[in-house]
Design a protein around this nucleic acid. Structure first.
Lengths: 239, 239
DNA sequence: TCAAAAGTGTTGACGGTACACCCATGT
DNA sequence: ACATGGGTGTACCGTCAACACTTTTGA
């Protein structure tokens, strides 16, 4: 085992052993019925070999934390995330049997989870699991998923992050089902539609959904540009 | 320089060098005129020797992150915090000239800042600085303070954390000035009083403030017990 | 023609905001 | 007596919640 390698400055002394640092990401997606799912991998190495876990891994030296999170997601599950936000840093001694491991947890949103191609390096299996039927998870990953879900529930109410779970063009029904799935409660259809349309941030594309066996719904897209300029002037998205 | 020491499990390999991990804490307090202040230390060592910075330091192996934050606060500034919450983890390469240093930032509230005794180990000087007159700070600490302030502004609106900045018994005026100082905007006196009293979480102590040269205001205390039991049933504090 | 979802308004309750004066106290 | 802040009520307005029927479409 080589001595601990040097970094940029000679002033940096190595009297103290360092904890290891990982990043883990709780990835949310919706299936075609707008049901909220979480991406899990089956661990291909010890500890917790064979258990389900959230994708993640060690941060490399001089690697940005967000870059590390994206790299691990790509390596372990091949998903393309549309939204990524830091969640919380878990560092309780004993959370990893290998020693002191500090994990910077993130949560991410992806657009659609039907037919997601999955790569794997460390993971033997990658799978979407419905939020209301999750298996036991390795380490403290259940806690991470719970925290991420709460954060998402709070955030969709005051920021337009939900759109990152939908395709660029979507129906009002899809949007409402998304909110109902995330908030885990029913919403009134008329009130919901009135409220979201009143913000004037949805653009009617003059297209309708295809191949449905009922009256086809209009497709809307979210006007990110307009939202951004409004947000600069203190506008607050609110559902 | 000794080789990097071993941890619990032999499975834990040391092929990769690890970033260092620190904790830093943005500590808020009010002066006697209810003006929001931040606790800063003047750095007594390189890098940024002589610059103002937020108190913090390296996490020890197998030390819990919150414990580390409290330890550093005690060592560097001797303050007793009444509230401590994790804020964000900063890990951009280059944020510390010594090498890759990941900082888990916290924010804390203390009750009163008049005549605060200050100890120091690494710090040559410890001082409260008014939020609207902050010096340049070392590293990315300005960013930390800004993030902490935003978080505090958001949090006082939906959680009773502001009371951790006040003495156990306080006047409604103090409470209002606290909110005005944190939110940085004036509030209507009658509406504010009606709203906070309507929550039925303030207990009139039947005492009044002393040694004031005007009509003495009633002193209230916040009923933490009642709040906790209400919160369990879904009650949400709201200012 | 049936099944399924799209689309559409009104009312009542509640909470937020705006606003000004008299009172108690210490100097 | 004066300066300083303590303490109080009402009216208007906007927002939210509750609620049901007709229309369109594909099978």
């Amino acid at each position: 085992m080589p001595p601990y390698p040097s970094t940029a400055s000679p002033l940096f002394t190595y009297e103290y052993p360092r904890p290891a640092v990982t990043v883990d990401a709780v990835v949310f997606g919706l299936d075609s019925r707008s049901v909220l799912h979480v991406l899990l991998i089956r661990r291909g190495s010890k500890p917790h070999l064979g258990s389900w876990a959230v994708p993640g891994g060690f941060v490399e030296l001089d690697e940005d934390l967000e870059v590390a999170a994206r790299r691990e997601l790509l390596e372990e599950s091949g998903v393309h995330v549309t939204y990524l936000e830091q969640l919380y840093t878990f560092g309780k001694p004993g959370r990893d049997p290998r020693g002191h491991v500090i994990s910077v947890a993130w949560y991410a949103l992806v657009r659609t989870i039907d037919h997601t191609p999955v790569a794997d390096t460390d993971a033997t299996e990658v799978q979407w699991h419905s939020m209301d039927d999750l298996p036991e998870l390795a380490f403290d990953h259940s806690e991470m998923v719970t925290a991420a879900h709460k954060r998402l529930q709070a955030k969709v109410c005051y920021a337009p992050v939900g759109f990152d779970l939908l395709p660029p063009k979507f129906t009002l029904r899809q949007l409402q089902q998304l909110y109902e799935g995330i908030l885990d409660r029913p919403l009134d259809k008329r009130n919901f539609r009135r409220k979201v349309l009143a913000m004037n941030l949805l653009v009617d594309t003059d297209e309708v959904e295809q191949r449905v066996r009922h009256r086809a719904a209009r497709l809307y897209r979210f006007d990110h540009q307009k939202y951004n300029s409004l947000a600069l002037n203190g506008f607050i998205f609110d559902i």
